[in-house]
Amino acid sequence: MNRQWRAFESFHSPLDPCPPRPKAYIVPPNQYYVMQPKGLRQYAPREALRRGTLWPDLYSPYERPFREGVSHGADGS
């Protein structure tokens, strides 16, 4: 799941007024397909309805891989 997140550093000055915040953005799996190949693995119909896609390879949960105030990777992500 967390393979979809990209953590990035941004400059933080010692003079910045607020404590730094971990930063990351998500790259959903559709970005890696030009055209969807045939025969991809499929969820069971009921599972697919719940997830919004029939294909696990296109599933993109939106769970932040870190909690606010915890640096990236410190909580096992």
Partner: peptide, 10 residues
């Protein structure tokens, strides 16, 4: 930017 970059959504 300096005032907002490190602020959480909350």
């Amino acid at each position: 930017y300096k005032l907002t970059k490190d602020a959480t959504p909350e």
